[in-house]
Measured scan of single mutants.
Amino acid sequence: KRLCLVCGDIASGYHYGVASCEACKAFFKRTIQGNIEYSCPATNECEITKRRRKSCQACRFMKCLKVGMLKEGVRLD
C-alpha cells in the first residue's frame, strides 16, 4: 500500500502530483483555494504524522510543498 508523503497515512491515490491521503489532499486544496497563510508558533520544523498532522498547519502546508504538491494543480473555480 502506498503511504501519504505528507503524513504517512494510507494514500488514496496521487493528488496534485504526490501520493497522498484524502485529509492532506483536502487540506492542500482548502489552503490554496482560500489563499490561507499559516504561521508556525514554533520553529517551522514540527513533525507531521497522521496523529499530529492537525497540530501545525504551517508545517503541514510546508511539507505538502516540500514533497512536491503542485499549487498549479488546484482549480480556483
Rank of each mutant, 00 (worst) to 15 (best):
R75Q: 14
M62A: 12
M69R: 02
T43L: 07
N44M: 12
G34C: 07
L3F: 15
C4V: 00
G34L: 10
K63M: 09
L70S: 13
L5M: 09
C7I: 00
L5H: 05
C7E: 01
S20A: 15
R51H: 10
K50A: 14
E72T: 09
Y14M: 06
I36M: 10
Y38G: 05
M69K: 00
G17A: 10
V67W: 02
L65R: 04
K50Q: 14
E45C: 05
V18A: 07
C56A: 01
R51G: 13
T49H: 04
E37Y: 02
E72Y: 04
I48P: 07
L76E: 14
F61T: 01
L65I: 06
Q57S: 09
L76M: 12
K71M: 10
C21A: 00
E45I: 06
T31S: 08
G68F: 12
G68H: 02
C46S: 03
K66F: 03
F28P: 02
C64A: 06
A11L: 06
I36V: 12
K54N: 14
K71R: 11
Y16N: 10
P41D: 15
L70H: 08
A23E: 14
L76W: 10
S39P: 14
V67L: 07
R75G: 13
A42H: 04
K25W: 15
F61W: 14
E47K: 08
V67N: 03
I32E: 08
R53S: 09
V18P: 06
R2T: 07
G8S: 09
A23F: 03
H15R: 06
A11T: 06
N44V: 10
V6G: 01
E22Q: 10
K25P: 15
R2Q: 05
A42C: 04
K63H: 05
R52L: 14
E37S: 04
L76G: 13
M62T: 14
K25F: 15
A23V: 12
K71N: 09
I10N: 05
I10T: 12
D77R: 09
C7W: 00
G34T: 10
I32N: 03
R51L: 10
Y38M: 03
C64G: 03
C24I: 02
T31M: 07
V74Y: 06
Q57G: 14
E37Q: 05
E47P: 09
A23T: 05
A42W: 11
R53P: 10
S12M: 09
R30A: 06
V74T: 09
S20T: 15
A26T: 06
Q33V: 08
S39W: 15
Y14A: 14
A23C: 14
K63V: 04
S20Y: 09
G17V: 05
F27Q: 00
G17K: 04
E37A: 03
E37I: 06
V6N: 01
I10A: 15
R60S: 06
G17M: 06
A58V: 01
C7G: 00
S12E: 11
M69H: 00
K1A: 06
C24Q: 02
R52N: 08
K25V: 15
N44I: 13
A58Q: 09
D77A: 09
E22P: 08
C4D: 00
I48M: 08
A58W: 06
G13A: 02
I32H: 01
C56K: 01
E45P: 03
L3A: 11
I48Q: 15
C24V: 00
C56F: 00
K50V: 14
S55E: 15
K50N: 13
R60F: 15
D77H: 13
T49Q: 06
C59D: 04
E45L: 06
R53I: 14
R52K: 09
G68I: 00
R51D: 10
A58P: 03
I48K: 04
R60N: 03
V74M: 09
I36A: 11
E47D: 13
G17T: 06
A58K: 10
C24M: 01
C7D: 03
K50T: 12
N35K: 12
R30H: 05
C7A: 01
C46W: 02
S20W: 11
N35F: 06
K1P: 01
S55Y: 15
I36R: 07
Q33T: 08
R30K: 14
F28C: 01
Q57W: 08
M69C: 00
C4G: 02
A19K: 09
L5Q: 10
S12D: 12
R30F: 01
S20G: 15
G34Y: 13
Y16E: 11
M62S: 14
C21D: 04
S55V: 15
S39M: 15
A26S: 06
R2G: 08
G73W: 11
R53E: 13
R51S: 09
T31Q: 04
C40T: 01
A58E: 07
G34H: 06
E37L: 02
T49D: 14
A26W: 10
Y14Q: 09
R30V: 06
R60Q: 14
V18Y: 02
V6M: 00
E22C: 12
C59F: 04
A26R: 13
C21L: 03
R51V: 12
G73R: 11
E37H: 08
V18H: 07
E37P: 04
S12Y: 06
T49E: 12
F27N: 00
F28T: 02
L3N: 15
A11M: 10
A58D: 06
K54R: 12
Q57A: 12
C7L: 00
R53D: 12
G13E: 02
Y16W: 10
S39H: 14
C24Y: 01
K1G: 05
I48W: 07
K25I: 14
E45Y: 04
M69S: 01
Q57H: 05
R2Y: 12
C40N: 03
V18E: 05
L76Q: 12
T31C: 05
I32V: 13
F61K: 07
V18F: 04
V18I: 12
F27H: 01
L5I: 06
S55A: 15
L5C: 05
Q57L: 07
P41T: 09
S20F: 04
D9G: 08
D9Q: 09
D77P: 14
G73P: 12
F28G: 02
G34E: 14
C46K: 03
Y16D: 12
V6K: 07
E47M: 03
N35L: 06
K50D: 11
G68Y: 07
E45H: 09
T43F: 03
L70V: 14
Y14W: 13
H15N: 09
C46G: 02
I32S: 08
I36Q: 08
R51I: 06
E47A: 10
K1C: 04
N35Q: 13
G13P: 05
G17E: 11
K63G: 03
Y38F: 11
